[in-house]
Nucleic acid binder design. Structure first.
Lengths: 316, 316
DNA sequence: TCAGATCGTTGACACTGTCAACGGTATCGA
DNA sequence: TCGATACCGTTGACAGTGTCAACGATCTGA
């Protein structure tokens, strides 16, 4: 009885919020009026800027867009020189989509404007309320995503705080699971620090996996030489394993590397990291070299793996 | 320094939520595909169903719609017999808009479907999470509404729990401010109970004012005779006074009564309630009778006020 | 090998929303 | 009292947004 009443109250509250936010999104839309892009186009651009080279159908599914409509949007982008299509080696019907330098620039401007708009909103709030707002938003997202069985995770570009998280989680996990000492955390800190300080976004990238609003994994792809990319710091949270996050991260690197013009990807790991090894094998990497070393307070066997990008562009 | 990082993180979280909910509203939109109404039309219907007879321009402002676009939507509704226009007595350029019985019926169906959809979402959540969800939504609404200086309050139809709130707040306030005893709360409970149990929605209404997600006021308009309506239980929370909530509630009753075909509105109050008296005077009510009585544990002077609807339809 | 599904594309089309202009009305100060 | 100005609701013209069905090419699995 009382629970029926309560349920009705909740339904009313949720519907009220839907109405409220419907209107609010209309207002956000207005901020784009000055730009040459529609809200939908901006959403597409944003998705493309994540850099994981989706096919058109993946993009359409991710954003809930009609395939025909999306096709036309993409044609428009191509005509303006904002995107390039790379035919998929695995499926001749598909192409992988990526922003050109101009595309990145166009997106960067929108991105900055959007950030400024949100920052202005936050600035008009007492600082404590800003945190409350973000927390409430994360709660809603988590609960709804869980209820609707939406995609269990998303990849995105790193934002402030993510780099520190990468170092922190690497240090913690490897200490806990393998007993490695602080020198390992130091190594990760150096790699991440160098990337954060300076990198070429056209050829070097980091992806953060997020699940239920929580960071759940990371990977870096950096330049070793003009022809060789290096995959580093692949990490998936223990409680987020088995969802395909690792595979998706490795795959995303492969696509990006191929599109960025590298010939092959190399990576260094250790034989004790069994689950990572399986990921690399599944993605087509081959074991090139194997040598014992003493590091991080243990006797380990280091391994070098390589993926040739000529024939083996991973699909989907 | 750390505050800059933090601010960036918050901006990212808010933007992520915007993207998420943009998509989610797209999904909600799909639920309407089966109906003959577009999302915008549904929003208009919802606003009209609140029963406070807005003019077209008020409606457009409330929903952020273009006047031309809205004009066509309304014409369509009128052609389908869903709404009627009552010329405003105060401003010949305006008409007051109200749903016809058919309009109410069409809306009721949509409303039920929408409620069912939300209820299904909530049902797929653990009960505790449903409450969390509603709380988080209320928090967001409150914070954003405050930051953007949006309309400080809205009127809406009562939902489960509201009637109890009306009784509770009346009892509390009049006990605290005037020392009235429980018999007053009992009187309110009877009035509200009778309304909740049974009323004719075409000629009797209740409005709840909501501010920052909190209930902030109430009013009832019920039938005294075919020609006379009675205004009852006007209430505004002490900390929500001075915003025009009371005036808006009284005004809404006036409009509704005129449209429902009453000739005049009567109400009974007591001389100690000075601020209410000012509201009635401003709305055009005249003091008809005044007689002492002993009630609620005190010697009081009861007053009867009346508003003639023939000439004095309040505008806006 | 073949039926059925998927990918991206296209044409046709209805709907959504914007903009400028207009007649009628209200407001306010000279 | 008048006139300038602003507002209300309406209309025409139009560009943008999104939907639907159909198509050829390709992939998948029995």
């Amino acid at each position: 009885m009382s629970s029926t009443i309560e349920r009705e109250r909740l339904v009313a509250a949720v519907r009220e919020f839907n109405r409220f936010y419907t209107q609010r999104i209309g207002v956000l839309h207005e901020g784009l009026l000055a730009s040459p892009f529609s809200l939908t186009e901006v959403r597409v651009l944003y998705e493309l800027a994540q850099g994981d080279q989706p096919s058109a159908s993946e993009l359409g599914r991710a954003l809930g867009l009609d395939a025909g409509y999306l096709s036309r949007i993409l044609r428009g982008f191509e005509a303006k020189g904002l995107i390039v299509r790379t035919p998929s080696a695995a499926d001749a019907r598909q192409s992988h989509l990526a922003l050109t330098a101009e595309g990145e620039a166009a997106f960067a401007e929108l991105d900055a404007r959007s950030s400024a708009e949100v920052a202005a909103l936050l600035a008009s709030l007492p600082p404590a309320d800003g945190t409350k707002l973000a927390d409430a938003m994360a709660t809603i997202e988590r609960l709804i995503a869980r209820a609707t069985g939406a995609a269990p995770f998303v990849l995105r570009q790193p934002v402030a705080g993510d780099f520190g998280w990468v170092v922190h989680r690497h240090g913690l996990l490897y200490a806990r699971e393998y007993g490695w000492d602080a020198s390992f955390e130091g190594l990760v800190a150096e790699i991440v620090g160098a990337f954060a300080k300076d990198h070429d976004p056209a050829r070097e990238r980091c992806w953060i996996a997020e699940k239920d609003g929580q960071v759940a994994g990371s990977v870096f792809l950096v330049r070793a030489s003009d022809e060789v990319a290096k995959l580093r710091c692949l990490y998936v949270e223990p409680d987020a394993r088995g969802l395909g996050i690792g595979q998706r991260l490795v795959d995303t690197c492969t696509r990006f590397a191929a599109q960025a013009g590298y010939r092959r990807i190399t990576l260094w790991t250790n034989d004790v990291l069994v689950s990572a090894r399986r990921l690399y094998e599944a993605a087509g990497y081959r074991l090139i070299a194997s040598e014992p070393h003493h590091s991080f307070g243990h006797d380990l066997v280091g391994q070098t793996w390589e993926l040739d990008l000529a024939g083996a562009v991973a699909s989907h």
